[in-house]
Design a protein around this nucleic acid. Structure first.
Length: 300
DNA sequence: AAGATCCGCAACCGCACAGTG
DNA sequence: TCACTGTGCGGTTGCGGATCT
């Protein structure tokens, strides 16, 4: 795809540009046999005229069996938008919440589709605020606004911590990664515990109680390592679709309060006003509107 | 049918950071 | 502490296919 740029003398022998089928086979065969290890020495061992970086990228973004290719689902798109609102362009962090998707794929999908879709809806894709009114949502409403901003910061930190742990667990579980099973769904959670996962979750669990009200988690097991944002409708949702309506109802503050009553989050001071502001800001409804649009391609 | 334009996505680049000696 | 190396991340590029004129 991309035209190779001028190469240094050192790199003179290295091939660039699109990968051939033959190269893919060589790389896949090597990784299947030896696992991912030292990328810098891999090309030579695998008989590839590529730099290690290029091999790593090709494996991570294309050849790995952990990758789900194809169209993004409605849930995935909504997850991306919500995560972007919270943490910005931290694609690698988002990966932890979009199993089998790569950071590159998420980034591309955001840049080519979701960003444009939001802009067409009059939403600033960077701030996730309506472009005509910069005073709402995260930053601009005095106490309530700052509360939510503070909440977003905490959630951002949590997401990053989780993503880091996913990465760590992946790097320590080279062989399991070659299977189709997501590392964090494995029953053997020792790696996670050793890498500090449990400790991290203890600290952050309380915050999840608040966030659970914003995003409908699949279960109330808030410490689940497979935690993902979940929306109970599938396929192309219709604006009047009952399941979509159901989701909206379930993600009201009532549910957050319900969760607050559960043992795991009982000591959380859920900020009802902040949540209501969140809903009032129209962002939730905007997401529905954006995602319910049929194939919003600007082409045509 | 053919040229122009648009758009998606694979791949590259530069930088930051962690590990090591 | 510093230099070096390896790895990971986010931004950017440009090819090639789809669509438009």
């Amino acid at each position: 795809m991309r035209r190779p740029s001028p190469i240094s003398e050192k790199e003179m022998v290295l091939k660039r540009g699109s990968w051939t089928e033959e190269e893919d086979k060589l790389l896949a065969a090597y990784v299947k046999k030896h696992g991912v290890g030292s990328w810098s020495s891999l090309p030579e061992k695998a008989g590839l005229q590529r730099c290690g970086k290029s091999c790593r990228l090709r494996w991570m973004n294309y050849l790995s069996p952990d990758i789900k290719r194809g169209k993004f689902s409605l849930q995935e798109e909504q997850t991306i938008i919500q995560l972007h609102a919270l943490i910005g362009n931290r694609w690698s962090t988002m990966v932890a919440h979009l199993p089998k998707r790569t950071d590159n794929e998420i980034k591309n999908h955001w840049n080519t589709r979701l960003k444009k879709r939001l802009m067409r809806m009059g939403i600033d894709p960077m701030t996730h605020k309506p472009r005509s009114d910069a005073s709402t949502f995260l930053c601009g409403r005095g106490k309530k606004g700052s509360n939510l901003s503070h909440m977003a910061q905490w959630e951002s930190a949590r997401l990053e911590a989780e993503a880091r742990l996913v990465r760590e667990s992946r790097s320590k579980q080279i062989i399991p990664r070659l299977t189709n099973q997501h590392p964090l769904t494995r029953s053997d959670s020792n790696q996670l515990t050793r890498s500090g996962r449990t400790e991290c979750l203890d600290v952050l669990k309380a915050w999840q109680g608040v966030v659970a009200g914003m995003f409908a988690f699949p279960t109330q097991d808030l410490s689940s390592p497979t935690l993902t944002l979940c929306f109970p409708f599938n396929g192309v949702a219709d604006a009047d679709d009952e399941s979509s309506a159901g989701w909206r109802e379930k993600t009201t503050m009532a549910e957050a309060e319900e969760l607050q009553d559960t043992e795991s989050v009982s000591d959380v001071d859920v900020d009802v006003d902040a949540w209501l502001d969140f809903e009032d800001s129209g962002v939730v409804n905007c997401w529905d509107r954006v995602l319910n649009l049929p194939n919003f391609s600007s082409r045509g």
